[in-house]
């Protein structure tokens, strides 16, 4: 049913001159994918370091809250880049993405992960400087990292499944 609703929109998109330009200009998709991956590196490294700091494996000179603060601006910027490049990639090959259950799973996971990351940020902002993060907060950071890994897996599998 969802496919039947989406298909006419894809047909409309495929008929647009700008879509044809994006799709058939040889360098656009690989360049957008490269930028997309670089932005993923910003987001995933931030999640990894915060999670590893949470379980006290790295970066003990700074508190979890300070690490989170260190990565906040770059993560937000990277998320905007991901949105922009992801939109262009979807416009380039709409049927490959929008009719693909892996892509849909990825999008649902992105929304859930962003909500979880927002909640983690709110909780960390209530901590005093240098205060040790409670166990639940640290577990939350690890769950968010696992979510980003799941999203990255979905991203790669869009090319293979659907």
């Amino acid at each position: 049913m969802l496919d039947a609703w989406i298909k006419p929109k894809i047909d409309w998109l495929n008929a647009q001159p700008f879509q044809q330009t994006i799709r058939y200009t040889e360098w656009v998709v690989p360049t957008m994918q490269t930028i997309h991956i670089i932005a993923v590196a910003f987001v995933m490294t931030a999640a990894l370091i915060v999670a590893l700091r949470g379980i006290e494996l790295v970066g003990t000179e700074w508190s979890v809250a300070r690490w989170y603060q260190r990565f906040h601006a770059s993560t937000i910027a990277a998320l905007w880049v991901l949105l922009g490049t992801g939109t262009i990639l979807t416009l380039a090959e709409p049927e490959r993405e929008l009719l693909n259950w892996v892509f849909r799973t990825k999008m649902v996971m992105v929304v859930i992960t962003l909500v979880l990351a927002h909640l983690l940020g709110r909780r960390l902002r209530t901590l005093q400087p240098g205060q040790k993060a409670p166990g639940g907060v640290r577990l939350f950071a690890v769950i968010i990292l696992l979510c980003w890994i799941g999203i990255a897996c979905c991203g790669r599998w869009i090319a293979y499944a659907g």
Binding site: A41, F42, T45, L48, R156, Y160
Partner: peptide, 21 residues
């Protein structure tokens, strides 16, 4: 192949991200 490639991309992303830091 897809799973090996997925693991390769995730590892490379972390290598790049941590070096960039």
């Amino acid at each position: 192949f897809p799973w090996t490639e997925t693991a390769h991309v995730i590892c490379l992303v972390i290598v790049f991200g941590s070096i960039l830091l």
